[in-house]
Structure formats: C-alpha cells, structure tokens
Design a protein around this nucleic acid. Structure first.
Length: 345
DNA sequence: CAAACGTGGCT
DNA sequence: TAGCCAAGTTT
C-alpha cells in the first residue's frame, strides 16, 4: 500500500481503463471478452514478435480460419505459407497441432495447467490465455513484466538468475480479480511507458512506488548477462529455372526455417558453412549475394542460377515464377528470389 | 540449463 | 551501423 492507500494493481488498472491500447485481438471497451481462439492466436504470434508485425498476420489468419475447427481442418502447408515472414516457424507447426488437439477435445481447456499441456504454450502463454480468455487468476510474466517488476522493486540480480525474484514479486502484485486486464496493463505499461530505453517516468502511474526510479537511472534495470558473439556463416542458394518456373523444395520439419518452402541450398546452417556444391551440373551463373541476420548467426547467402531442362533428383516442385509471392518463402529466400528476379532478362 | 530458433524496427 | 530489442518455447 502506498501513502494514499491504493495498491499497485488498483493504480495500474485505473490507468489501463483510460489508456489501454486498441488492438485487434482485444475486447473493445464495453464488449464481451474475445474468443479464446483469438486470444490464443494473438499470444502465439506475439511470442518474441512486435505488435506491428503481428497485426496483418492476425487479420489474415482469423479471416482465413475464423475458428479453431477451421484451422484444425486446414492444410498444414498452407498454414506454413501464410506464416512466412513472421519468423520462428515452429510456432506455425505447433499452431496446427494445437488447433487439432483443441478441436478434437471440443474446445480450449479453461485452466492454466491444462493449457500448459498444449503444443506451443509455455509458462507465459498458458498463463496469458487463462487470465485473458477465461478470467483466471494467473501470474503472467513476459519481458515487459520482467522489466516493469525489476524496476518497481529494484531487483539488481542479472537475468536470467533474477527471474525467480521477479516472479515472486509479480505473484505478489497480481490481483484476484481482473488478472487478465492486469497482465495486459503491465504489458501496455512496458510497451509504452516503462520502455527498455528512455522510460517515461513522468507519465507512469506507478512512479510514486517505483524503487528503481527512487534509486535513479531505472533504465539500467533489469540487468542482463552479456550476450555471446554471433558467428558469420556463408552459404549458397540455387535458382533453377525451366519454362517460366523455378525449382522449390520444402525444408525438413526441424531446424532452421523448418517446414518452409525454400530454394535448394548447399546445406549451410547456423553451425556450419555450406559446401558450395550445386544440386545439379551445368553452367551456373553468379548472381551476387544477400545478407541475413538470424538470432544466433549472420549469413551471407551467395545466389547462383541455372537454365535447366529438368529438376534435380529428390523432392521438390516447379513453381510458376509469376506466382513466386504466393510460394510462402521465408524472408531469407524471398531476398534471394528478389535478387534472381532482378537479374532475369 | 544453455542453445536453437526469424525478423524488422530503432538508435 | 552494429547492436539491442520484441506478448517465449522446445530440447
């Protein structure tokens, strides 16, 4: 309790009632709670992904597959293609798997523990769906909450070790009622006021009780362990063209860009360079290279092209070049395709 | 538990 | 610009 007798959650919910962001997956003021399907969909898309990036994907997915039953019945390859560009593609595979489990059992479970068992739902997402869609009291801890709590209570222990103390404090300030609004309020506060850099303490509804602010320089919290250096990798991708079509493959389900349609390549990965061996003999033309930065490696991908009469051995498909935008290529290969197209006659 | 796993925006 | 950061999960 502060001097004026209001708890942190009371202050925060009061602020949220006036300043909540208007987001497509959120209940509009005065309207009923959004369907669990939409809450789940948005939470999965928002994992490590910005609101701005998610919005168009959320609109596309909910328009194409308006219910969990519709998504459960969808062709997995079509869902993977629709996810192209959003990143972390195991999310899309788990999305389909989860939709099928949920449809088979006749709807989403309404407890945090049961939600946690579904594919793609970890501690954060299970708590968020339980609180936001089902009104359960659940302690929702994401990167926003970590930052707000670390500052509010001046938790000095660096992450990831400091997460235990952060969770304990988050548990203590989570209200019994409106836990879903409280969670979203914490995230809105973290996204708009208690930002990673240059926090707007003058606008913060919790400034009065913020120990980090009292100590000065709240932006230094939470302290984080130093990051490892990012290796440089080199690989090759191959643009094989025949009669207005290009040869595309589907990558293995696990690993980098798993399950995604792609240009054939030389086996590069985050751990090793490619072997630069083309999948087919012939007169290859050097088109140049594209750069792409992943979370844990930076890649220079050299792109080579070949006018062929037949495709390489193995799995693959001829894709009409005029429809390459519909192939659902992840961004790395979309860049490579763009390079190839720009150099075509 | 540390590492793998995308992408785009901002400073 | 090179690095940091974003509503984490899985292995």
């Amino acid at each position: 309790m502060s001097a004026t007798g209001k708890t942190i959650s009371e202050r925060l919910l009061h602020w949220y009632d006036a300043h909540a962001r208007d987001l497509p997956w959120r209940a509009r003021p005065g309207k009923e709670a959004p369907a669990p399907y939409r809450v789940w969909m948005s939470e999965v898309m928002l994992q490590q992904t910005t609101v701005a990036a998610v919005k168009p994907y959320f609109e596309k997915f909910t328009a194409t597959w308006p219910t969990v039953e519709a998504l459960a019945a969808a062709d997995e390859a079509e869902v993977m293609g629709a996810w192209a560009g959003l990143g972390y593609y195991s999310r899309a595979r788990n999305l389909v798997k989860c939709a099928r489990e949920v449809a088979a059992r006749g709807g989403f479970p309404d407890t945090e523990a049961e939600l946690r068992q579904l594919p793609g739902l970890g501690d954060y997402t299970a708590a968020a769906v339980a609180a936001i869609a089902f009104g359960r009291r659940a302690v929702v801890v994401d990167a926003n909450v970590e930052r707000v709590v670390a500052r509010l209570f001046a938790i000095e222990e660096p992450l990831p070790g400091g997460r235990k103390a952060i969770r304990t404090h988050a548990e203590a300030i989570t209200p019994d009622e409106r836990a879903g609004d409280f969670a979203q309020a914490m995230m809105d506060l973290g996204a708009t006021i208690c930002t990673a850099r240059d926090p707007k303490c003058l606008l913060c509804p919790l400034a009065e009780e913020c120990e980090g602010r009292k100590r000065g320089d709240p932006a230094r919290l939470p302290v984080k362990a130093p990051k490892k250096a990012k290796p440089e990798r080199v690989g090759h991708a191959y643009w094989i063209e025949c009669g207005g079509a290009v040869w595309l493959v589907t990558r293995p389900g696990k690993g980098m860009l798993g399950g995604m349609r792609a240009l054939p390549d030389d086996g590069w990965s985050a751990r090793t360079d490619g072997d630069a061996r083309p999948p087919l003999g012939g007169e290859w033309r050097e088109l140049g290279s594209v750069r792409h930065v992943f979370t844990h490696a930076s890649l220079t991908l050299n792109v080579r092209s070949l006018a062929a009469n037949a495709g390489p051995h193995g799995e693959g498909e001829w894709w009409p070049i005029a429809e390459i935008d519909e192939a659902g290529l992840p961004t790395l290969f979309a860049k490579a395709a763009r390079l190839a197209l720009a150099q075509r006659d």
